[in-house]
Design a protein around this nucleic acid. Sequence first.
DNA 1: ATCCACACACTGATATATCAGTTTAACGTT
DNA 2: AACGTTAAACTGATATATCAGTGTGTGGAT
Lengths: 262, 262
Amino acid sequence: MAERPAPQPRRKRPRAGGVSLTSRAYEAIRSAILSGELPLGGPISGRGLARRLRMSLLPVAQALRQLENDGLVESRPRAGTVVRMPTAEDIRGHYVIREALETQSARLFAERATIAERRELRAMAAALDTLYAGKGGARQDANRTHATFHHRIAECAGCPELVSAIEKSHVLVLNWLYNSAADFHPPPRRWHRDLAEVLTRDDPEAADRKMREHVRFGLETVLRRLAASQRLADAAPRVFIRQRRRRQSSAKNPIQPTKPKR
Amino acid sequence: MAERPAPQPRRKRPRAGGVSLTSRAYEAIRSAILSGELPLGGPISGRGLARRLRMSLLPVAQALRQLENDGLVESRPRAGTVVRMPTAEDIRGHYVIREALETQSARLFAERATIAERRELRAMAAALDTLYAGKGGARQDANRTHATFHHRIAECAGCPELVSAIEKSHVLVLNWLYNSAADFHPPPRRWHRDLAEVLTRDDPEAADRKMREHVRFGLETVLRRLAASQRLADAAPRVFIRQRRRRQSSAKNPIQPTKPKR
DNA sequence: ATCCACACACTGATATATCAGTTTAACGTT
DNA sequence: AACGTTAAACTGATATATCAGTGTGTGGAT
């Protein structure tokens, strides 16, 4: 193999905080999706993100692949990537999993939570019911607190895998909820207090049943909101914005390579 | 920006079968791990795999990242990647998830399976019990059939997400089992027939209870085998094999760049 | 005016090369 | 012989460049 010319020196960019660029890209894109900055069903440009995040395309591509694995985005190999718009069937399927995980979490909580943890849960439930009863402005707070509530149940169940599985599950649901502020129906007034009461009663079977009921109610809520989201998405169909083309040079002129700038 | 020399032309390698190289790498590495070709706790060289699979490092790196996400391998950023060796705590955590998913699957089967599917399941259970009762040679078959058995239950439950979640779960368990052929204890003689009998009885609660018992038995089995695996792994500590170094040129001779061949 | 083909910009996928960190074998010292 | 030192060799991570496929809009044909 002939010698290669010396490559030009490259500016080195020290890594920030010791985390890999791919992880940073993953977190950044994920939070952009969850915050609604990248709307449901909207297109994602890998190169655009790479420019915005000041990194090469590669970490972004890896992050997108991971997000696809998580079910947050959808990538068609040479055409583009979009934020995944779930179908009603997807959501039902997801809730089957969620029901499985949450009921298991409830069982373990009922078996293993300490006295202090049970007291804490009852307090959280009361606060949560109050938030939901409040006026519309508190709904985002309520959603976040609701996630924390379930997260705490899983933590007290004492199984890290369960915690992370449930967290991943909540991420998807939050994503589906945030993007449609309309059609909000508050849950029954004592909804979470009733749940906490049963969970803290030291009866795993009863905890399982009550949690199952709780999750199924959540399914109805999300399905309602999905319909609203889809109405919005259909009104603004996803489209890739492209640069204006230059006028075509009439006919048989195969030269003019004219690299696009940059 | 000075002009760069023209890059040498690159042989193009058309993609085989339309699947991305990353997916091929993922499948190849995964199956190499599951078949035991890459032993539990053993080191994995990204570059070595890339050479073997006739592709660049990049798809392999992406595949490894995905496998890390699945919990099959473990990567220390600049030091190397190894096939993940689970701790007993990992396995217990994993089985909490598995119990959640399988009991949900059992419930749905009891609710929704057709008559034909119920008959099929009883037949599979009988065949499976026979396999386990046979002599040691049939054990790999038995393990595979066992996976199929649970897979079928999930399929009949009618939820694709549940099927894939359970499948992913089984992959890990199979991995942990395959690599320790010792300490095999067959399950009770009518173990799967009893399970199938309850599942086909149209009583979701009973199906849940029976499946829970079934899964917990599996946990004991895997824990026993893990102990055997670890004894083996401790005997042969993981080590990276490196090329022999050339003799150091005595002292203050900073020349001799002598690129390593290839 | 309507329709269709084609060029071009843009997409993700991949190859190559380099970087910066880690491991370990060979060396020199004790 | 046992023990720290050190640099070769190897690791995953990332940048850059190219490839090959897609979708859109322009422009010519009808």
